[in-house]
Write a protein that binds this DNA or RNA. Structure first.
Lengths: 235, 235
DNA sequence: CGCTTCTTTGAATTTCGTCAAAAGGCGTGG
DNA sequence: CCACGCCTTTTGACGAAATTCAAAGAAGCG
């Protein structure tokens, strides 16, 4: 966890949170940001923590996971570069609703409540951006609710893999590779199933040549067939 | 669908959307609101509609339901008195992400995009309120994702009933009654199960004296036992 | 090499959805 | 007032999908 002297004002320009702002605003935001470089598997915050800040990823990624009172866990989402997270808590009960853990070495920026509110007061567009970002996520989570309520495990896992490929995939000679390491358990926790079921499904797909999986590194070889599995209501 | 001459300025005071605003703001909002009285089973809007407005319920309630490309449907939430809905679409892609249908005769207020943005510009607190409301819903939906992914049908139905009681219940001599009519199918679509399973579960609870159900009218008699079912990881 | 973590696989069990059918309520119209 | 039809609810039987239980195999790391 090293402090960074660098002020990444232009990294901020890429973030939806600061979309539509004048350069001066980006500089103000950069000026009061706390920037940290974090090792893999570092906890940024825990569910229930009450010293909330607004966060954003510059490089790397984090896993946002929620556990219930019974200990059961789901992964809410993966956050990649240029995405914000942990911001909603500032406006509700000042407690993070989930845990955040780095997936790899990560460069993260964050702002205190006062700093963010101050920025929002000066640049109301930021508030609009927050509403739009949260609104999109609300719709995504609602889609997941529908999937969980109506689809079989295999389709859900297919959706998860495709979504991750879209969000954090890059093309290679072998197909689309997903940037960060993914355990079967992660897939299962996102798809809402067990790691056993996830393993069986992935093994099946690997045998069918749809994807490869070495070392927690997923590479999709046959996107269209996966799409068929994800979308096809029949069979 | 009758136009109302009445301007319900004080109805607005009860709404979280307008919390923390001066009376003059409420009057401005009331002045530009379109208020309608709607019959039961009326569609306010459909998923995909692109003439979006921000809505709020004064009396009655609506069911917000989403369908996937495969036709499968889930109920996203029920909206009761003093709650807003359909507002997120203004900030994202200008298309409603779900259908809204009245559960009973309903008094509804709505604002056009320009009116709401105008109000927000004059009273920035409204934007903060929107963020807080949407943030809360995001957390609720995330809770539902966790429930769907990790809990059995009975626990989920228990959660649904308790949530509805909190959201739209009022005390009577017999217990807590839920204001709007609820079919087994509604409960099932919200809990992510089938009406058959929901029926079996409800019948079981009714026999055990936890609640009564006449005429799509639910009354909870034993909240603590329901809470036990909802929370108890064991068994 | 031994330890830990992750993955695979098999078998038994369970939950829940599906299919099928009957019963109950309520309003309409004869 | 009764009969009919429509909608909702209840209930039983069955089967399939997925979790659970159990154990062994891989792979990375100190």
């Amino acid at each position: 966890m090293t402090r960074e002297a660098q002020i990444p004002s232009q990294s901020l320009a890429a973030m939806e949170l600061f979309r539509g702002l004048p350069p001066s605003a980006l500089e103000s935001a950069a000026a009061c940001a706390r920037v940290r470089r974090l090792p893999k598997d570092m906890r940024l915050f825990n569910q229930g923590d009450d010293s909330v800040r607004a966060h954003a990823i510059i490089e790397g990624g984090v896993r946002i996971a929620q556990s219930g009172s019974d200990g059961a866990q789901v992964v809410i989402r993966f956050i990649g570069p240029a995405e914000m997270f942990g911001t909603v808590a500032l406006f509700t009960d000042k407690r993070y609703p989930a845990d955040a853990i780095t997936l790899a070495e990560t460069l993260e920026a964050s702002w205190s409540e006062d700093e963010l509110l101050g920025l929002m007061a000066r640049y109301p567009q930021i508030a609009i951006n927050v509403i739009r970002i949260i609104g999109k996520r609300l719709q995504e989570v609602q889609d997941r609710v529908r999937e969980l309520a109506t689809q079989r495990a295999e389709r859900r896992v297919a959706h998860v893999v495709l979504r991750l490929a879209r969000q954090a995939g890059h093309s290679t000679v072998d197909g689309t590779a997903i940037e960060f390491p993914l355990r079967r358990k992660d897939l299962a926790d996102i798809a809402g199933t067990t790691l056993h079921t996830a393993s069986r499904i992935l093994t099946g797909w690997e045998k069918a040549g749809l994807l490869t999986s070495h070392n927690q590194q997923l590479t999709i070889r046959n996107t269209s067939e996966l799409l068929r599995i994800a979308e096809n209501a029949a069979d």
